[in-house]
Design a protein around this nucleic acid. Structure first.
Length: 806
RNA sequence: GCCGAAGUGGUGAAAUGGCAGACACACGGGACUUAAAAUCCCGAGAAGGAAACUUCGUGCGGGUUCGAGUCCCGCCUUCGGCACCA
């Protein structure tokens, strides 16, 4: 009697309820079992709900986790909400609903959508960054950073987003505009909380050698950290007791330094304003530079500009030559010393500037024509016009010059980083309050641990302000408090933390989410850390990933966590594009709604398609027909129940294919080649159909292999095959036997001079020694080489022979 | 400009230096059906040929090799990231 049709809606609902009721996927703190911690980036619960990109990453890690569970691991696959942040606050402002209410609604919606897709999350460990019980520990970490001198407040020019009315971290400014809203970013001097991530620059770089991150992520992090080696040295200023310090990666070219440049913000201008003969002109230039946004300074204004500081002359320390000092905005105040020695012969920027302003170009490395273009090759090139360095290659000359600078007390070796300290404060309402107060007597006083969490006060006035003050500043009842140290009157800090704060340590909280006395129990942290496998978007490589590594390294050093690195392995998924090949967006009208897809083909088919559509790390356009094809495959799997026999084993005819498929799927899941794993299972099912029947043993193996991708249908079929318990607890990952993956006979392609001319069945055991005699005796081969001389015979077992005959 | 990835049928794509196009989608044909849908079976890179088969074919040009989509050299294009970082 045929089975009922595949009613995915009922089946999926049924099993989601079973998993929830029986807590099938709860991780246990049984330290005797091997553990595996799989992690996805916890979603920001936006008002738009889940998009089809979320399930791509989630399904991938769900597959890895479910497979590991079937292989006997204690798997932790948690979920939570990165719920602070601007979009929620903006939505709240627009619709006059409190951000906390909006957040709760959005989370409820997301939770329901994720459950609909059947991810094997441990829902008992859900965390929410906006929950005071959670952000108590975010604030606690901040206090520790403050205590160790890694958090500080300073006046500095920050990236001010004119749209969001908030300061941004460097990492949040993309192409001169706000990463989030696209508005212009201008520089604004404000007092800001900063985190000294630069202190960890070298450690963040070194740590990359110990982890298994995809190369793209490593190189982007290295690039962002931007380590360079060189020297810092002083140039004396003629007639003044003053030295101008520069950083250079090319100390070897010092003899070719024909002028210097300081950034418009360099203090020497202010200090010698009375001496600079053209100070008005310089001031005008400074004002122009200050007005320009970073975008204009970099993108639109490649053309060099500058003004000479008349009356200021520097002396090249190695040859005593007097050289002019200029001010130009191509020198950045924020990097190195804010001043450079210019070597126009061997640096593109300096060359361009020298050409424009008619400054001398002196060749000190031979190999190019420095009048025509700068010669920047450091590989082969020999020093000339360089006194003590003449005749040396660049590498040796660098070394020699640094030794000389040290010997003469002019300078020393120096390593620089592009990485800047992290601008940590935001002038917005919907974030973690920074737990310090400002006391008239004691200055900045941190709250004590027992005063945490410092809750966000409830208010209806959470609009951002034009003057750049946090909305919290207007809440006098909350702001006015007493100093924890002296008990006198004090005011609370009113800036809040950026969204990156809560996400910098959330993976730790999953390990012990309800612990009220510390971040997490030490034994549990020791057992579960590091995260074994973390998948997420490339857009977080220089933001979240770098920030959280920084916090983790800090927590390691103060003894809170047991590992130097938070994540052992990091992979990344490709974006899902609209059917037209463009990025999905509301404005393009090409957004696919997961709810609709699940309604039409079911969660299993949806998951299957997301994994089958193409290589996991590449961007792929959505195809509704492709998704339907996956539904068709599950229909075929379902109907296998109409042709199943009672045989527990594998049939002889399919023995090799069964073992080969187990091997292929096992290996492909581990290397995230989900598309080919699924293709192998499709082929297997095609073989079952071709055979006209499937044994119970074969079907059960298929169900276990397919379970990580399509958990509901496989559970249902497993149960219908007579199993009382969930496949997740009653099945084991199938084993394969390498020997049995081989067939008795194999088809060998016969090439003559590299072209396939015939295909012959041969015993699989044919050895290279026997091959030549075997093939030469075959009539098909004889005919092909008739009248020719065999020059060479190549045999590749199991694949082909190539007979070179002329 | 620098760093990284990628260019393969009508489409999404497979392929430890070893039979290019697995597996799907779309398409065409057949079976079943009064009919349609669903399902099952078959076909299919291009050109030529009635067919056996032949030639060409993985962005372009060279090279290494018995053999190259894959390795090397030189280009072109696309997409990501970084970019006046001295």
């Amino acid at each position: 009697m045929p089975n009922a049709p595949y009613d995915y809606t009922a089946i999926e609902k049924k099993w989601q309820e079973v998993w929830e009721r029986e807590k099938t996927f709860a991780a246990s703190d049984d330290f005797s079992k091997p553990k595996f911690y799989t992690l996805i980036e916890f979603p920001y619960p936006s008002g738009a709900g889940l998009h089809v990109g979320h399930p791509r990453s989630n399904t991938a890690m769900d597959i890895i986790g479910r497979k590991k569970r079937l292989q006997g691991y204690n798997v932790l696959f948690p979920i939570g909400w990165d719920a602070f942040g601007l979009p929620t606050e903006n939505y709240a402002i627009k619709n006059h609903i409190h951000p906390a209410v909006v957040t709760r609604e959005n989370i409820d919606h997301f939770r329901q959508q994720l459950k609909m897709l059947g991810f094997a999350f441990d829902w008992d460990r859900e965390v929410d960054t906006t929950d005071p019980a959670y952000y108590k520990w975010t604030q606690w970490i901040f206090l520790k950073l403050l205590e160790k001198g890694l958090a500080y407040k300073t006046e500095m020019p920050i990236n001010w987003c004119t749209g969001c009315k908030v300061g941004l971290a460097n990492e949040e400014v993309v192409g001169g505009v706000c990463e989030r809203c696209g508005s212009e970013v201008v520089r604004k001097v404000k007092s800001q909380w900063m985190l000294r991530i630069t202190e960890y620059a070298q450690k963040l770089l070194d740590g990359l050698d110990d982890v298994d991150f995809i190369e793209k992520v490593k190189s982007q992090q290295r690039n962002w950290i931007g380590r360079s080696e060189g020297a810092e040295l002083d140039f004396e200023v003629k007639g003044l007791d003053e030295k101008l310090r520069v950083y250079t990666t090319r100390p070897d070219t010092l003899y070719g330094a024909t002028y210097m440049v300081v950034s418009p913000e360099h203090p020497i201008i202010e200090k010698y304003k009375d001496r600079i003969e053209n100070i008005d002109q310089v001031r005008a230039y400074q004002r122009e530079a200050a007005k320009k946004s970073d975008f204009e300074r970099t993108e639109l204004n490649k053309e060099k500009t500058g003004v000479r500081l008349m009356g200021i002359t520097a002396i090249n320390p190695v040859n005593g030559r007097e050289i002019p000092v200029w001010v130009s905005d191509y020198v950045l105040v924020s990097y190195g010393t804010g001043a450079i020695m210019a070597v126009p012969a061997h640096d593109e920027r300096d060359w361009e500037f020298a050409k424009k302003f008619g400054l001398p170009i002196v060749e000190v490395v031979s190999g190019g024509d420095v009048e025509k273009e700068p010669y920047t090759d450091i590989a082969d090139g020999v020093l000339v016009n360089s006194g003590i360095l003449d005749g040396l290659n660049v590498a040796k000359a660098k070394q020699r010059m640094i030794d000389y600078l040290v010997e003469k007390g002019i300078g020393e070796r120096k390593v620089n980083f592009k990485l800047r300290d992290w601008v940590f404060s935001r002038q917005r309402y919907w974030g973690e309050p920074i737990p310090v107060v400002w006391c008239e007597h004691c200055g900045c006083v941190p709250l004590s641990e027992d005063q945490l969490p410092l809750s966000l006060p409830d208010t209806d006035h959470y609009m951002p302000t034009d003057n750049g003050e946090s909305p919290l500043a207007a809440m006098e009842d909350w702001v006015n408090t007493t100093c924890p140290k002296c008990g006198g009157p004090a005011k609370r800090e009113t800036d809040t933390m950026p969204q990156w704060a809560g996400s910098s340590w959330y993976f730790l909280r999953y390990i012990d989410p309800h612990n009220d006395s510390c971040i997490g129990d030490a034994e549990k942290l020791k057992y579960w850390l590091p995260v074994d496998w973390y998948n997420g978007g490339m857009e977080h490589t220089t933001l979240h990933l770098l920030y959280s590594r920084f916090w983790h390294k800090f927590l390691y050093e103060i003894g809170v966590v047991p590992t130097k690195e938070p994540y052992q392995k990091r992979t990344s998924h490709g974006m899902i594009l609209g059917a037209n090949g463009e990025k999905m967006s509301k404005s393009r009208g090409n957004v696919i709604n997961p709810d609709k897809v699940v309604e039409e083909i079911g969660a299993d088919s949806f998951r299957l398609y997301e994994m089958f559509m193409g290589a996991f790390d590449q961007a792929i356009p959505w195809s509704t027909n492709g998704a339907r094809g996956c539904k068709r495959f599950l229909d075929r799997v379902w109907r296998l129940m109409d042709m199943v026999t009672d045989d527990q084993g594998y049939s002889d005819g399919l023995m090799a294919e069964m073992h080969m498929t187990i091997k292929k799927v096992t290996e492909d899941y581990d290397s995230m080649k989900f598309n080919t794993a699924i293709a192998a299972m499709m082929s297997l099912v095609n073989s079952f159909y071709a055979a006209g029947s499937v044994t119970r043993g074969e079907l059960e193996t298929l169900l276990v292999l397919l379970n990580p991708v399509a958990p509901h249908i496989t559970e249902e079929m497993w149960q219908r095959l007579g199993h009382a318990q969930s496949i997740a607890v009653s099945a084991a990952w199938p084993e394969y036997d390498e020997e049995k993956t081989k067939k008795d006979e194999v088809e060998i392609a016969v090439q003559i001079c590299g072209k396939v001319r015939a295909r012959l069945m041969t015993p699989a055991t044919l050895t290279p020694g026997e091959a030549e005699a075997f093939f030469m005796a075959r009539p098909e081969v004889k005919r092909l080489i008739e009248g020719k001389t065999v020059k060479k015979f190549v045999f590749i077992p199991g694949r082909l022979v190539n007979i070179v005959a002329v």
